[in-house]
Write a protein that binds this DNA or RNA. Sequence first.
DNA 1: CTGTTAGCGCTTTCAA
DNA 2: TTGAAAGCGCTAACAG
Lengths: 346, 346
Amino acid sequence: MIRKRVTLADVADRAGLSKTTASMVLNGRNDVRLSPEAFRRVLAAAEELGYRPNVAARSLRTSKTATIAFVSDIVATTRFAGDMIRGALDAAREHDHVLLIAETQGDEAIEQQAIEAMLDRQVDGMIYASMATRQLSVPTSLLGRPIVLLNATSADPEQPLPSIRPDDGAAGYAVAMALLRSGHREGIVLVGRNELKERDPRVSLAAGARLEGITRALAEHGVALAGEAFCEEWQPEEGYAGMRRLLSGQSRPRAVICLNDRLAFGAYQALTEAGLHVADDVSVVSFDDDALASWLRPGLSTAALPHEQMGRAAVELLIQPDQTTEQRLTPMPLITRASIAAPSTD
Amino acid sequence: MIRKRVTLADVADRAGLSKTTASMVLNGRNDVRLSPEAFRRVLAAAEELGYRPNVAARSLRTSKTATIAFVSDIVATTRFAGDMIRGALDAAREHDHVLLIAETQGDEAIEQQAIEAMLDRQVDGMIYASMATRQLSVPTSLLGRPIVLLNATSADPEQPLPSIRPDDGAAGYAVAMALLRSGHREGIVLVGRNELKERDPRVSLAAGARLEGITRALAEHGVALAGEAFCEEWQPEEGYAGMRRLLSGQSRPRAVICLNDRLAFGAYQALTEAGLHVADDVSVVSFDDDALASWLRPGLSTAALPHEQMGRAAVELLIQPDQTTEQRLTPMPLITRASIAAPSTD
DNA sequence: CTGTTAGCGCTTTCAA
DNA sequence: TTGAAAGCGCTAACAG
């Protein structure tokens, strides 16, 4: 049977003091001076009874719930969502907060319902997360409240909102540099061009930034791409098809930059099928650090999406006392595995 | 600026009625009869003012929060966790509930902290989820409260708790039958034997059940396994190594059952490297329906973990009025792709 | 059919 | 240094 919950009044009784005193001791208020004796007695009583404050009751007075809403468009599809949530969860725990989660599935009605459910529960603030790095408009019902955009930025220039996203531009540069440093100059091809993703910030902020970083690095070294494959979706099948197209050209590619790991997975399949060995014959480098990257043979070098850190940062930005409109770019570390080698001399 | 929240008192004022009446109308109480006029006026007032009840205040009276705790050991690592959460989220939304999430990382101190944080917030019940299907002991602080075990069962026979897990036994049978039905009799090998997983229910309930289903199907058809590979972890690398060992035997395997998709991924790599074609030369079948399964070429036939359904069922079991101790097994549908073919006649 | 009143558990004036 | 009392927003007895 569940014993009735111990209340502050119980603790006060046991300590032979008033609720006021008990409350002050337990909240460690240092603006009033309590006698050491009172302090001791309250603490002892709370300990013995196993007192835990009722957050609902407290929040009724303070309108603070130590609860944060995490609203995202899609949680399931990828492992990345989990990483963001995990980071947020860790940070929340460290600050004695708790996460209320909702998923909108990109449906406005569901989103509205979810937001209301969260607001009804008096959350202290909201993390609004997107699975694809992109610009978005936050529902007006959220404006004026503490909010942090995660893996997204605000589409409204009038209304800058604090945001956290990966530094895809720097990652693009680093990825291209990794090939250049290994001596690649000729036969560098790109898999995953996609004008829609590159041009429409509401679809993706990653594609354009990655491409920009890559082209900047190549340009600085006077190197031109030897080929490009368009991919409508960044999925393995498209990477496979794209790579096959590039392999059917007159001169064989020597290095492949894939715009994400799933494309790279497809590219590996096409290369293997063509009898080519990754690294020995063709270097491959990519973005995301999907779990896949470490499973491929040889392991795929890739710029890692720092999703866990981003989730953590979102909570920290939200909790901190002074509001900012910081637009934070989180670095994407290049994970070096065996897929890059110096160009073969055949 | 955030306008002050509209309260029930505001609505009552506007409607020219008492809080009681307003409350009754808004909660659709049919035990008392309200005048249609009062009904109309309250509803109109609430609508105009955009009234939303304060859940904290309500729960102080009713000790119901319409909030469910979802506590799991690990959320991030796999996509599956996301699927369970998504299912739970969907069901919760449909029932106007909301999910409070915590992750224990298998650490008892963190777990205790998480549980307290949830109880402090007066959650109506708890879903206690495990990433690996296994037996576990729930912390005593949770006993006597509404709880559903997700992807797990209670290790304590004295204390049966409602639980939901996949029907791995039936899946094992179905997977083996898929090969048998395609005409395979000779050269069927198994990748992923693991005594620890098979024997210790606190490590895994899946391994033993899958194996049992497989051997039952084979025995019924008088077929014996032609080989087995032990794998300490069910990861691609181990699948690769295990498959290589089996390929080095005197007679070539004709069909491979992998105990999960990651092992199958490794097995594909080993087969390809050996110059064998999946399906044409060697059939492969597996368990989980990881995203990988559809990305492989040819697509991998596999018994799908119904994680989304399980998450959904957990919420429904928890919310329903009458407590049960149902031990629910959720079917694992066999997803048929191109990795199975009739044995080659070479 | 509707209103008055009390009280859920807590924090916070204000007074002693 | 401590306590009494009010009140956060809501629901539920109990009257009327």
